[in-house]
Design a binder for these strands. Sequence first.
DNA 1: TAATTGCGAAACCAATTGATTGCAAATATA
DNA 2: TATATTTGCAATCAATTGGTTTCGCAATTA
Lengths: 101, 101
Amino acid sequence: MRRDIFQAIADPTRRAIITLIALQAMTPKAIANNFNTTRQAVSKHLRILTECELVKQEQKGREIYYSLEIEKMKEIDNWLEQYRKIWESRFNELEKVLAIP
Amino acid sequence: MRRDIFQAIADPTRRAIITLIALQAMTPKAIANNFNTTRQAVSKHLRILTECELVKQEQKGREIYYSLEIEKMKEIDNWLEQYRKIWESRFNELEKVLAIP
DNA sequence: TAATTGCGAAACCAATTGATTGCAAATATA
DNA sequence: TATATTTGCAATCAATTGGTTTCGCAATTA
């Protein structure tokens, strides 16, 4: 059961959850109310997101508030870095061609 | 058969293929030789990558060269933008706290 | 021309995934 | 204390996934 961040964000519902809790912590029930799905399904998604440390939880009484571990998102950014270099260098190539002498 | 870029990069083999063909076009056979897998398996991955327009192909005789459609990778970058804003703003908050008056 | 090579596609299989249902535990409220 | 609410977790099911095997087609080579 290998969890990695790329697998975690592959599911559209999980991406929606991430968007939802990026700015404010929410309970599973509150999250489920925002989608056309059940609490249990959301709970499973939250579990997957927690397993790959994309989400952290804070218990308050019987409620559990989930919020995004924004630092973890940087991993995607880091992976993307190698490709960003490529498209930036290609852009520079294009600039050279278009440059007025 | 919904193909989207996030699902495409979820698989580690596909990410490895993307890395491999990012800088130079390669045939399925050449790609397969770089991994511990068959040409047919690579072929299936390439099909998925092609379906979501992450990869383009160029026929040369009986060989087909696959290369990365780098522009498509920007879609991930665009999606990440909303979160980049968050972690940058948090960093600025931190800076304010740490700032020497 | 005949054999070989590179390829995609279809058929198939085991493993995984996402969703649902049902349940028990913990907390809150009457 | 009795009841309702919020939750995680296990069992189950249908659909999807990644891989293999096999096949036929087109291009190259002998």
